[in-house]
Design a protein around this nucleic acid. Structure first.
Length: 230
DNA sequence: ATCGTCAAGCGGTTGG
DNA sequence: CCAACCGCTTGACGAT
């Protein structure tokens, strides 16, 4: 927002069921854009000479920087003045980011020249930009998963209720046949699917259920239909 | 005073 | 080994 970039971050969702292409904006019409729109950001370009200075003096970190002091990881007692990219610089960076989320060394160099920045600064900008995009995307995924959780919780409640109702009908527990001997298994040999609480043979082997031999499904836990009616 | 944003530094990871 | 990248963090700065 500091950059007032209304273009916002182009986001895609890597969520099952939702397309998540990289290049295109796709995904979700979800506008997470906070868009505080405090537009009045002063347009003073801190990278410009500011006063009468004619040489392209950038407050810090721009092209003609004294590399030796701050360059080599010298985090001195005080950092240099913070660089603020001009609107035009931001615009151009955004533009090229839209085209490509990473830069080849050549592109980086060219962009740096064009923007009158050091290649390192262009590189950093792209790194941070990618990080911001990823963060936004993660936030969107988080929202999506929260909604999933909500609806699954709701469905779980509903199924639990349904189960209670069925139990209340005092239906006898199903007889489970051994897949090998086709004989009824003792109750001690049975177990419950932790997910849906369906009874199966404790061995994990698919066990046939007596009343419906035809319905011996591939997945003992989750046959085609819960079949509430007997 | 506090908070959000963002450029930049640093250390770890990875591919060539 | 080195360069490019990433995640995390720091510190400057503007807004509230």
């Amino acid at each position: 927002m500091g950059s007032t970039s209304p273009s916002g971050l182009e986001l895609t969702m890597a969520v099952p069921g939702l397309s998540s292409s990289s290049g295109s904006e796709g995904g979700f019409g979800c506008n997470a854009g906070s868009g505080s729109g405090n537009a009045a950001m002063r347009d003073l370009d801190m990278n410009q000479p500011a006063s009468g200075g004619e040489e392209e003096e950038f407050p810090m970190g721009s092209v003609e920087e004294d590399e030796e002091e701050r360059g080599a990881g010298a985090v001195g007692p005080h950092r240099p003045k913070k660089l603020r990219l001009s609107k035009e610089q931001s615009r151009l960076l955004e533009e090229s980011f839209r085209l490509n989320h990473t830069l080849t060394p050549k592109q980086k160099e060219a962009l740096a020249v064009k923007l009158k920045l050091r290649p390192r600064q262009v590189e950093v900008w792209f790194q941070n930009r990618r990080a911001r995009t990823k963060l936004k995307q993660t936030e969107l995924e988080c929202e999506y998963l929260k909604r999933c959780f909500g609806s699954l919780t709701e469905e779980n409640r509903r199924l639990q209720r349904e189960l209670e109702e069925l139990r209340a009908m005092r239906v006898a527990p199903p007889t489970v046949l051994s897949p090998h001997t086709r004989q009824p298994l003792p109750a001690s040999a049975l177990t419950m699917c932790p997910r849906c609480e369906r009874i199966t043979a404790a061995t994990g082997a698919p066990a046939a259920r007596t009343p419906r031999p035809a319905a011996a499904a591939a997945n003992p836990f989750h046959p085609r239909r819960p079949s509430a009616a007997f």
